[in-house]
Computed example of a mutant assay.
Amino acid sequence: MNTDGRWHKQDSQVLFAGGPHDRVRLTVDQAVRPDGVTVAYPHVAAPDSVRVLAVHRGRIAMVTQHHYLHDTEITDLPGGLVDKDEEPAEAARRELAEETGLRAAWLLPLGTVATARATSTETVHLFLAHNCISGAASLDAGEAVRTQWRLWHDIDEGDIRALQTAMPTALADAASLAAVHRAGALLQAIGGILPDADTDLPRAAWAAYTVAATRDPIADERLSLVWLDLAIGQYAEGAAILSELEMSYSGVDGEAAWSRAADRLAALAEPPA
């Protein structure tokens, strides 16, 4: 019996290798369980992958494509495999640009998830992306991907009413769901609940003003930018304020930039009755 409570691999046999550069492998290990019994443990050894929650002017980039194993179209976040000797963040930037054309100025790691912990070694690295520049997509051979743009409330399962009306089916990819939930928790800590999807510009601007004017000095200011983007980035006036703020929020004129943004948002705002 193993006193450490762990499984221990004794041997491993690859039955089949395929996929990109033969990196997906059907494997059977001989493994010793915690009770000391040796068993055959079949699994798929797969490379790590990434998913990217990219916020761009009030909307989130989603991709829809047919998935062979499930024989259906699935809408999820952009992502793909991490290449050999590639860092996950590099893979996230590459996959986002290839599938949507977006080039992200910065990425915030959201941790990892094991998508099928008992049957596959795949680990998915999750990232939040912002301050993106639009460009042309560059799909790999064999890919047929359609980019969609969704509001936060379309994909946040906390807003069931919006979810049911905006998307025909719930977000089906487990890693994408994890990215949405983790990003949502961070954003709520920054500025509370985002304005409803049907909130008009004056009320959305008031919510954004309160965040810009009363930022937590300890919090990552990039998350404040994401919150503001989701709140008012879909409006031309909001996008203009964000563009100026993104260029100078972290420089020597950072505090003045936030103050100017707060003043401009206040001019657009309508305080709640």
Rank of each mutant, 00 (worst) to 15 (best):
M1I: 06
V14M: 03
V14K: 05
L15A: 04
L15K: 02
A17I: 07
P20T: 02
H21N: 11
R23M: 04
L26I: 02
Y41P: 00
V52N: 04
V55N: 05
H56I: 00
T64N: 15
L69I: 13
H70W: 15
H70Q: 15
T72G: 08
L77T: 01
K84E: 13
K84A: 12
A92V: 05
E95T: 09
L96K: 05
E98F: 04
G101F: 00
L107V: 12
P109V: 11
L110W: 12
A114S: 06
T115N: 06
A116P: 02
R117F: 03
S120L: 03
T121A: 03
V124R: 08
L126H: 06
F127W: 14
G135N: 09
A137H: 11
L139F: 12
T147M: 13
D159A: 07
I160A: 12
M167N: 14
A174W: 03
A179K: 04
A208P: 08
D216M: 11
W227I: 09
L230D: 07
L230T: 08
L242W: 06
S243Y: 08
E244M: 10
M247A: 15
S248N: 15
S248T: 15
Y249R: 15
G251V: 13
G254A: 13
A273E: 14
A273Y: 10
